[in-house]
């Protein structure tokens, strides 16, 4: 299953990457935040790959789960080994579309992104509002959305259930540059 999805992703990347109107970043930022009465947990990933095709509005995002950096080493270890099982599912992906991309200008800078998020081998349809800035030499996407841990079949042991929120806030900031 993962292989098939991987193939789709590559087809999309190859399709997207072969033209002139592609924008890309390999240093995108994605972070997640979990708030609970016991503790707040935050992890940042600064190595996110994202590609936009401006002719179709299609967007493909890929990131490595192991690139999420936590403040505490133990949290990072538990996250990778027990919760998201990075050895089995090393990547998270998003493949979707920026709606009304052709209507974006200096005054109209908010639109919607709709697509499929895959984490821990589980797919989930996501739609979220994004702040978008379109320039000749850069496209910036910024926003956040919420996901339920349970939707991705991530098992949290009951002993730490109070330490981890049921709903996680995901924030992103992607500065795409023209792709030659």
């Amino acid at each position: 299953m993962a292989k098939i999805f991987g193939l789709f992703f590559w087809l999309l990347v190859v399709n997207i990457a072969s033209g002139q109107d592609k924008f890309l970043t390999k240093e995108g930022f994605v972070s997640f935040f979990s708030h609970s009465i016991v503790e707040d947990i935050k992890a940042d990933n600064n190595q996110v790959l994202s590609i936009i095709d401006t002719t179709t509005g299609k967007i493909a995002i890929q990131l490595l789960m192991r690139s999420f950096m936590f403040e505490k080493a133990l949290m990072q270890e538990h996250f990778n080994e027990n919760y998201v099982e990075s050895h089995k599912y090393p990547k998270a992906t998003f493949s979707g579309e920026i709606t009304n991309l052709d209507e974006i200008d200096d005054t109209n800078t908010v639109t919607e992104i709709v697509g499929t998020l895959t984490v821990h081998g589980e797919k989930k349809e996501i739609s979220t509002m994004v702040d978008i800035r379109m320039m000749d030499d850069e496209i910036v996407l910024k926003g956040d959305f919420k996901v339920d841990v349970a939707d991705f079949k991530i098992k949290i042991p009951s002993i730490v259930a109070n330490n981890i929120a049921k709903t996680i806030k995901v924030s992103f900031e992607l500065h795409h540059k023209p792709y030659e």
Partner: peptide
Amino acid sequence: CTGYLLDVIMV
């Protein structure tokens, strides 16, 4: 090494 996207990533 955290893995491979279009490139190998190291942190």
